[in-house]
Simulated assay, not measured.
Amino acid sequence: MLANDSFQLASDALSESHGRVSELARPFLRFLPVSGASVSTFGSLLGSETMSATDALAGRVDELQFDLGEGPCWDALASKRPVLESDLGTRTDVSWPAFLQEIRKEPIGAIFAFPLLFGPLEIGAVDLYSATPVSLSPQQQEQTQALTAIISRILLHHALNEADTPGETTTFSRRSIHQATGMVLAQLDTTAEDAHLIIRARAYAENRPMLAVAEDVIARKIRFSPLAEPGEDTQ
């Protein structure tokens, strides 16, 4: 099948998804030499959540970046340009050393991130990984960006519709983290940013995913208490 035909099939598949966010990542596998893909929202506009992932490893790539607060998806959105790492095994001069250290434990040879933008709005990113080192041609990069424009529009519509109607919950949903953040915020009378940081620090200290810690907070297996004032007794 010709490359342009593969891309057209991917574009058609995206159009035929009828806005189902769980189906947004799969079309990239139709025309790119990659093993997996994910679509995520993050930042102040829509919050951090993996909306679609083709497999568990693609979801893991997102989870690591969210938990560590660094990685190609963050760089792609900040720069509004694709981040293209065709051979992770040879790279050392990257701005995300913690993510690189962790991702090298996985069977991933290359990783790419494309920002999701809608005009001035920063929506999130598409992450793509290959089990072996591989490059994307200029045409493939251009085609990927064409699909990300469609996805950005779909995600924005989804977020606006969800404000009135409960939306689709995905396999890789991180809504538990949002809920747990609210609970920690109330427990400690702090800001949402600091509550999120406290959950992240607990996950780091226990070498667990943030999602697992968040679920324990919701289940009340973990509860955070304010520090006692000097001279105050603690129980």
Rank of each mutant, 00 (worst) to 15 (best):
153 R>N: 13
113 A>V: 10
145 Q>V: 06
90 T>V: 11
102 E>I: 04
156 L>R: 05
122 E>V: 08
102 E>P: 03
118 F>G: 13
114 F>K: 04
145 Q>C: 10
92 T>G: 05
82 P>V: 03
139 Q>F: 14
133 P>R: 09
121 L>W: 05
119 G>Q: 04
127 D>I: 01
115 P>F: 08
103 I>A: 11
156 L>N: 06
145 Q>L: 15
117 L>V: 03
101 Q>D: 15
109 G>K: 04
84 L>H: 05
114 F>M: 11
151 I>N: 05
92 T>S: 12
123 I>S: 08
88 L>G: 01
81 R>D: 07
152 S>Y: 07
124 G>A: 10
100 L>E: 02
121 L>M: 14
119 G>E: 12
135 S>W: 13
126 V>E: 00
82 P>F: 00
150 I>R: 14
131 A>S: 14
157 H>Q: 06
143 Q>I: 00
80 K>T: 06
88 L>N: 01
80 K>G: 06
117 L>N: 09
115 P>Y: 02
87 D>I: 08
80 K>A: 14
107 P>H: 09
117 L>Q: 09
158 H>R: 07
159 A>K: 10
83 V>W: 04
127 D>E: 12
106 E>G: 02
107 P>W: 10
96 W>V: 09
104 R>H: 07
151 I>Y: 04
154 I>M: 02
80 K>V: 07
87 D>M: 10
113 A>F: 11
108 I>W: 07
91 R>C: 14
140 Q>M: 11
92 T>L: 00
164 D>Q: 10
142 E>C: 10
162 E>G: 15
139 Q>C: 13
120 P>A: 14
161 N>K: 12
88 L>Q: 01
137 S>Q: 00
89 G>Y: 01
129 Y>F: 15
113 A>S: 15
144 T>F: 05
121 L>F: 08
119 G>S: 06
80 K>N: 09
94 V>Y: 02
103 I>Y: 08
127 D>S: 14
79 S>L: 14
113 A>K: 04
90 T>S: 08
91 R>W: 08
138 P>C: 06
87 D>R: 13
100 L>Q: 02
119 G>K: 08
136 L>E: 11
96 W>L: 07
113 A>T: 06
93 D>M: 03
118 F>C: 11
135 S>P: 12
132 T>D: 00
79 S>A: 14
81 R>H: 12
79 S>G: 11
150 I>Y: 14
83 V>K: 06
81 R>W: 02
94 V>R: 05
148 T>G: 09
152 S>H: 02
151 I>K: 08
153 R>H: 12
90 T>E: 03
126 V>C: 07
100 L>K: 03
81 R>N: 10
155 L>W: 00
138 P>D: 00
88 L>C: 04
103 I>N: 05
78 A>F: 05
103 I>G: 12
144 T>M: 09
133 P>T: 09
80 K>Q: 08
